[in-house]
Nucleic acid binder design. Sequence first.
DNA 1: GTAGGGGAGTTATCCGGTTCAGGAGAGGGA
DNA 2: TCCCTCTCCTGAACCGGATAACTCCCCTAC
Lengths: 338, 338
Amino acid sequence: MKRPTIADIATRAGVSKVAVSYALNGQPGVSEATRARIVAIADEIGWRPNSAARALNGARANCVGLALCRPARILGVEPFFMELISGIEGVLADRSYALLLQVVTSHQQESEVYRRWWGESRIDGVFLVDLHYSDTRVTELERLGMPVVVIGHPSESGTLSAVWSDDGQAVRETVSYLVALGHHRIARVAGLPGLVHTAVRDQAFAQACEGLAEHVTVHTDYTGEEGARATRRLLSSPDRPTAIVYDNDIMAVAGLSVAQEMRVEVPADLSIVAWDDSPLAQVVRPPLTALTRDIPAYGAHAAQRLLALISGESVPPFEDRAASLTPRGSTGPARSHT
Amino acid sequence: MKRPTIADIATRAGVSKVAVSYALNGQPGVSEATRARIVAIADEIGWRPNSAARALNGARANCVGLALCRPARILGVEPFFMELISGIEGVLADRSYALLLQVVTSHQQESEVYRRWWGESRIDGVFLVDLHYSDTRVTELERLGMPVVVIGHPSESGTLSAVWSDDGQAVRETVSYLVALGHHRIARVAGLPGLVHTAVRDQAFAQACEGLAEHVTVHTDYTGEEGARATRRLLSSPDRPTAIVYDNDIMAVAGLSVAQEMRVEVPADLSIVAWDDSPLAQVVRPPLTALTRDIPAYGAHAAQRLLALISGESVPPFEDRAASLTPRGSTGPARSHT
DNA sequence: GTAGGGGAGTTATCCGGTTCAGGAGAGGGA
DNA sequence: TCCCTCTCCTGAACCGGATAACTCCCCTAC
């Protein structure tokens, strides 16, 4: 029941281990006849190269890592990561790379996971997501000298390669769309304030809203509860906004529910925009206007870069397409001033 | 910049590789003084055991696998898998086990992934999810002789160990709750018909509903669109149901939206129950009555069993707690017959 | 006739850690 | 003094492949 090795194949074929190694790796040094015979035997007994043995020869581990540092309940409800992973794996699978996944609870733990994986030669590189300002993980990974692709804004990725999309542009597009619809009081329910992409959006939002009667950003932890609470507070203020942009879909749905509960009509009294389109945004009534990104493609681009990096190529920052606005029923003209 | 090996430590400590190996593995054969010295040096230079070298000696790979066979868009929107993974990893992390993840598009591809991982000695075992009837993956995995924990009903898991929960009981609890509220026409919007847990629920539902004026089950692919379509059809029938049970939360939310769009009041005219509680179920209005399970715990139990199996222990089927009903605003008494 | 060249294999070594079979030296009992 | 045991440590082999270097052998060319 032991797994077959090249030595077994060699015995069967009546040649040396080396001939088998050459034959199975397409190297010169064996005749075509012998090669065919060896390949046939390998096939027949179901031989697979032992990844440990290969890795031991300084070869690649054929594996990359991803550590996610978010509470389980948020990870579960945010389609983003699963879609990202799907996209990443589409590329990895083609090159027979595996993905090592770990959910951690702190950046310190995350760094520790990287150090361990790298020290144990388990992985050839990692993806880094959810960049913070002065992120200790960046310096840590730079120090390790491991191939890394940062999925996030290059301004904070240090010397590490980055794959990113211009959230600022998406914000500007959204705001000017809302302004064109006659909205003067726009609010934004944002995600975690420490994240770089939150800050980028914050800043772009503030700039795009200059000159408007009112604009405000509220930070949350991405959960529906906080999204609902923020919405309730916003809609309770005397000069309540006529449009709210949410940083994820679960908060947008929560906000929509709050509006309905408070008898605020969507889109007549309130327009809602969700960041990141998802089936969820489309099944609620009215369907949510959303900032659509091709997240699997985003992940695929990151994976391609990481593999290139591992092969020793140098990889300049790659700017993916910005999210684009998909108008649906949740946005409409602002009701003229009452 | 090379990663340190035990040979480096040996040189530094002035002993042989073997002494270092013994010292670092807590084996007898070195004095406490020497052991302390070696451990200190290892610590100082940041040594980690090369996992490939260890694996090569017949040791465990310290890694388990999970392949998910669902389209990316469904995976993303269903919190189930991410929560399951979080739970699994909580246990794995304690034992320094890693999780290898792959998203595949067919069972054939999934089996191929298992064969490859196992053949390459990358993993010590796998989780099998989304069991079908006459599942070829079961026989395939039995043939490989690899440790496997099936997350699903033991009736179809063959000789493989199973961790499961009694969906039938949850269905019965739900139906009797609805009946107690005066509902006589109950519908169920179910998931993929091929899945064992769908069939288990189907059967339990049919049995629990015996004697009712009407009960019907509609199968879907778990997407919000199909959930909405099914709901629309159900609510358009002359004898429309007064209660609908959905197999996941995204379909329940879609159903709720359809009801609202059709001016069917929830819960006055229609009660809604969602399978698997999630933040999503709680943020919509009215909040959804849901079948709550502790999914991370479910994953944790499965992981414990898989690790036990890998250690050579025998693992009987483990029945986890059944989902329990969490009543919220989406269910109420059936309106008396008009 | 012989040097040269290449095809087809082989042997030896290495990767980093584990394991087994000793071996040196100290200590103890008869 | 001899032998035995125990502690602490070492050399060698091994895991499954990759790779450098070498050996044949046959064919060609000068």
